[in-house]
Simulated scan of single mutants.
Amino acid sequence: MGDDHSHSSRGSAAKSWLDKIAAIFTAEPQDLSDLVEVINEAAMRKLIDNDTQSMLQGVLDVSKMRARDIMVPRSQMATINIDQSLEQMMPLLLENNHSRYPVVNEDKDHIEGILLVKDLLQHALQGSTEWSLRDLLRPAVIIPESKRVDALLKEFRQKRYHMAIVVDEYGGVSGLVTIEDILEQIVGEIEDEHDHEEDVDIKKMASHVYQVSALTPVDEFNESFGTSFDEEEAGTIGGIVLHAFGHMPEKGETIELQNLTFKVSKANNRRLVQLQVIRAKTTIDTSALQKD
């Protein structure tokens, strides 16, 4: 009798578990948590692959986000001043490689419009001096920080614009959002042809200046620079630097660690991307000695 009862209990438990699985796939999800469970279960059953699961999760995450959650903050916005000449703009254009820039008048709270680099190049290549930067501007789309990201993506697609300026409740500019920022939430970070230049972890730029990917493993960095950063503190040099700052640093911020100066040369609102590393001039370049 006991064995029959035991078999019966196991059978009931298995049936109950199967009933739950069946209910997930046959019943309509009641909320987002139910939908997440359906997606995770589908991945476990190999109905969808991991990439599809990640994208579906990204779509669900976007549905809960506001513009403030994904915007490039004001401090990291690359802008052009309305009074700048083409020659004055070029260093900024070459450094950032963006396709469009907000154009400001005096400060970032006064947005005159959006400049598309292709519009600028068209006039620059013509060699004409009879044009004004103001004449090339597209209207700036202004949105509140509370704007739903899924609704913004729909507007981007319907109205065919790619950038929106985010303002706070007082009308001050707090950041910007591009269509790429939204898509990255769904499919992961999108790299372009310029990002391939960063495949080399450490690149010597001058006698004491190096360009270093923030994703460079700590052991590789230590070996190259003769430093002793703790691999248990972080796996990458970007993690070491971020921990030392104690906050997400802005582009241009510097910090000194183990006789090296680290300058943030590229970052977004989520992570460090590229660092400039400067050796103190009194530091002996051991790699040069080894070559001799």
Rank of each mutant, 00 (worst) to 15 (best):
P102I: 04
E191H: 12
R138P: 06
Q30P: 03
E193C: 00
T216Q: 00
S174V: 13
E180T: 08
P217W: 09
G252A: 11
A164G: 12
V187L: 07
R160M: 03
F229N: 02
A22S: 08
A164E: 08
G172P: 00
F225C: 01
S128N: 15
D4Q: 14
G188P: 07
K291D: 13
T178A: 05
L60W: 06
L275E: 04
G113R: 04
N105P: 07
L257N: 01
V62A: 01
V218G: 08
G172W: 01
K203E: 02
D83I: 06
Y170V: 04
E130K: 15
H7D: 12
I284P: 05
R10C: 06
D19P: 00
D109W: 06
L86N: 05
L125W: 14
L86D: 09
M248F: 12
Q258S: 13
Q57L: 11
H123W: 11
K46V: 09
A22N: 06
K20A: 15
T282A: 14
V149I: 13
T227V: 10
L32R: 11
A42Y: 05
E253N: 08
D292T: 12
P73F: 05
I278A: 02
L93C: 03
E198Y: 01
A280I: 03
L183T: 06
R66N: 13
I82S: 06
G2F: 14
D119R: 11
D3S: 12
H110T: 12
I179W: 04
R138S: 11
R68D: 08
D61R: 15
E184P: 06
Q88A: 14
A151P: 07
R157G: 04
S265F: 01
L86K: 09
Q57C: 08
E233C: 09
A280Y: 01
A267Y: 02
L272H: 01
R134N: 12
A267L: 02
G246F: 02
F262R: 04
L153Y: 03
G113W: 09
N50P: 00
R160E: 10
A23T: 14
V117L: 13
L93D: 05
N269W: 02
A206Q: 09
T79D: 10
R271N: 07
G188R: 06
K46M: 11
V209A: 04
I179L: 08
I240N: 08
I48W: 07
I278F: 11
S9I: 15
D61A: 10
F225P: 03
K20W: 10
A288C: 09
V103L: 09
V187Q: 11
L275A: 00
L275G: 03
A214C: 03
E189T: 04
S63M: 12
A244Q: 11
A151H: 13
E112Q: 15
K266F: 02
V36E: 15
V166K: 07
E41L: 14
Q53L: 08
L120K: 07
L289M: 11
T236C: 01
P91F: 04
L94P: 00
R279G: 00
L120R: 02
R279I: 06
L56E: 07
G171C: 05
D219C: 08
L120Q: 02
A22Y: 15
E231P: 08
D83R: 13
N259Q: 15
D34K: 03
E191C: 02
D51A: 07
L133S: 05
L152M: 09
Q122Y: 13
I240E: 01
P249D: 06
S99Y: 12
E233S: 13
D4I: 10
A23V: 07
G239M: 08
E95I: 00
N96Q: 12
I186W: 14
